Simulated assay, not measured.
Amino acid sequence: MSQAKERPILFSAPMVRAILEGRKTVTRRAVKIQPRTKGDIGSYGLGQPFIRHPDPTKRNPECPYGRPGDRLWVRETWLEDPEDDGTWAYTQYMGCKGSPLSEIPKRFQKPEHCIFRASWNGTDLLWRPSIHMPRWASRILLEITDVRVERLQDISVQQVREEGCEVREFWLFGADAEKRQHIAASMFGGLWKDINGQESWDANPWVWVVKFRRIQP
Rank of each mutant, 00 (worst) to 15 (best):
V167C: 10
E80F: 09
W73C: 07
K179A: 15
N60F: 02
E162S: 11
V147D: 06
P8T: 10
G95S: 10
V157N: 01
A89G: 12
K32S: 13
R75G: 07
Q109Y: 05
R75Y: 14
H113W: 15
K106Q: 12
Q216A: 15
W78P: 00
K97C: 10
L10H: 11
D70P: 15
P61F: 06
V16T: 03
T77P: 02
A18M: 05
F173W: 10
P61E: 04
K110A: 12
I140E: 00
L152P: 01
G39N: 13
P129L: 12
G22H: 09
G42L: 05
G174S: 09
P105M: 08
Q181T: 12
F188H: 04
G47N: 06
Q159S: 06
P217S: 07
Q216L: 14
P64D: 11
E62Y: 08
A175G: 04
W206Y: 15
S130P: 04
T77I: 09
R135T: 13
S200Q: 12
F188S: 00
N121M: 10
L72R: 01
V26P: 01
W171E: 15
D85A: 13
K38S: 14
Y65K: 04
M187P: 00
G66L: 04
F116Q: 00
S43W: 06
I140F: 08
Y93V: 05
E178Q: 13
R59M: 12
D81Q: 10
H182V: 05
S200V: 05
I155T: 06
I51W: 00
I155W: 00
M1K: 10
V26I: 13
E150M: 12
W136C: 05
Q181V: 07
W206N: 02
W201L: 01
S2E: 14
T25M: 09
N121C: 07
I195H: 00
S102A: 14
D40L: 05
W171G: 08
C165K: 00
R17E: 15
R135Y: 14
G98A: 11
D194V: 02
R71L: 13
V149R: 05
A185I: 07
R168F: 09
R128E: 02
H132Q: 14
Q181C: 06
P49A: 03
P217G: 06
P56T: 05
T145R: 12
V147Q: 04
D124W: 07
L191Y: 00
A4V: 13
N60G: 02
A118L: 05
L46Y: 11
I183R: 03
L141A: 11
W136Y: 12
M187K: 04
S130N: 10
H53Q: 06
V210Y: 03
V147G: 05
